[in-house]
């Protein structure tokens, strides 16, 4: 499905991936943390390099512990409260103390504007609130690379704004981000670099001014015409 992808992301860079549905954008993200297992190739995040063909369990875990993912359908742990969702990895994976994890979770919840929802279970939260917890859970990890897999696609239109606002706040801290989204305005505004994918390949990439202002490839031109009307 993915073919000849060669992508480097600098520390602190914000890269947005756009393109038609079913073109491998999500697969690209999911290969980076082995939710989808790549058949061949090499992935490096920070000081961890994994060769896909001979990845061992420990390699996969190491990669996952340097990335954090925000899911389209939020994927909050349904049996845990908002606060526990954020604490979980800090205690279970990073082996931090419970007290420190709780403190961190509460401060992250405050940043996401959900301090009053700390003890709410996901089922009791709106879509927008769930996704903000999802982003908070990823923020708390302190991961080198944050992956956003169409974070607003499943949301009712009324909640999209608050989620994008939170992502802007994350971007302002020079967090390295790789974002798949259909929000073109947001991409234009937040991206250091935009990548256009089609048919499992990177067709064109460059700063938003170039991708949106002076698209070269015919497929990109057609795509932009369609989404921007």
């Amino acid at each position: 499905m993915l073919d000849g992808i060669n992508l480097q992301i600098a520390d602190g860079e914000r890269v947005v991936v756009i393109g038609p549905s079913g073109t491998g954008k999500s697969t690209l993200l999911r290969c980076l943390n082995f939710l989808d297992v790549p058949q061949a190739g090499q992935i490096t995040v920070g000081d961890v390099t994994v060769d896909a063909a001979k990845a061992r369990k420990a390699d996969v875990l190491a990669l996952r512990r340097r990335t954090a993912m925000v899911f389209q359908n939020y994927a909050l742990f349904a049996n845990k409260t908002a606060k526990q969702n954020i604490m979980e990895a800090l205690v279970t994976v990073q082996k931090g103390s419970k007290a420190e994890a709780e403190e961190r979770a509460l401060s992250v919840l405050a940043e996401t504007g959900l301090a009053d929802k700390a003890d709410s279970y996901p089922a009791a939260l709106s879509g927008g609130q769930q996704q903000r917890v999802g982003i908070g859970r990823a923020m708390a990890l302190g991961a080198e690379l944050m992956l956003f897999d169409e974070p607003t696609s499943a949301l009712d239109p009324e909640w999209v704004g608050e989620v994008l606002d939170l992502m802007r706040a994350v971007a302002e801290r020079k967090q390295t981000m790789l974002i798949v989204t259909h929000e073109m305005q947001f991409a234009r505004e937040i991206a250091d670099r935009v990548i256009f994918m089609d048919g499992g390949k990177i067709v064109e990439s460059g700063p938003p001014s170039q991708i949106f202002g002076a698209p070269q490839d015919a497929r990109l031109q057609k795509f932009l015409k369609r989404v921007e009307g």
């Binding site: 943390n33 996952r64 954090a68 899911f71 742990f77 049996n79 990895a89």
Partner: peptide, 24 residues
């Protein structure tokens, strides 16, 4: 999605099963 979220934060199979999947 519960499995994937647990995997994405770097849980081992045992942690995932014991802390996320079995309780649900």
């Amino acid at each position: 999605s519960q499995w994937e979220a647990a995997q994405s934060i770097g849980m081992t199979q045992g942690q995932l099963m014991w802390r996320i999947i079995l309780p649900q």
